[in-house]
């Protein structure tokens, strides 16, 4: 068995304690809720899009350390990315969390989430925010406004 510190890496503990881009956004182009009914983890993502780029992103929510840290790391990573690019990136993260393939080096800090592979019950915690974002970006629904 792996050690607990593989799951609760310093990066995770840090992003849980001080989540980045945490807060409500008043004028977001898209607002999406991610909910894990199993454990009650709930996050709301706010996204602004400019020329197919994620120009602003923030989130609020409650959840375990893994889900908060993953949301925080995600907002940091995808800020400024093209939509296509972030969808491709979602696929990489999804693969990293759910497969046993060797971990790709180009994921940077996000590699710290790979520890959940050893904890099948926690994979959903790590992927919640990513699924929420991916769903918004790939859906053809009209833009949801907070106004």
């Amino acid at each position: 068995m792996t050690d607990l510190t593989d799951l609760y890496k310093q990066v995770i503990l840090d992003h849980n304690k001080n989540p980045r881009n945490f807060g409500r956004m008043k004028k977001a182009d898209k607002v999406i809720e991610g909910f894990n009914p199993l454990c009650g983890d709930k996050i709301t993502l706010y996204v602004c899009l400019k020329k197919n780029t994620l120009s602003k992103i923030s989130f609020i929510g409650t959840g375990c350390a893994i889900s908060i840290a993953s949301s925080s790391l995600m907002t940091e990573k995808v800020l400024g990315m093209k939509i296509d690019e972030s969808i491709l990136f979602f696929n990489k993260i999804h693969k990293m969390l759910t497969s046993n393939d060797p971990i790709n080096d180009d994921l940077g800090k996000l590699n710290s989430l790979a520890g959940v592979r050893e904890y099948p019950t926690r994979i959903k915690c790590a992927s919640l925010a990513w699924h929420a974002l991916n769903q918004t970006l790939t859906s053809k629904d009209k833009v949801i406004s907070t106004e």
């Binding site: 607990l4 454990c39 375990c64």
Partner: peptide, 12 residues
């Protein structure tokens, strides 16, 4: 500390 983090750690 969220309950799920408690659950995982005590399971260890």
């Amino acid at each position: 500390i969220h309950a799920h983090d408690i659950g995982t750690i005590v399971d260890k």
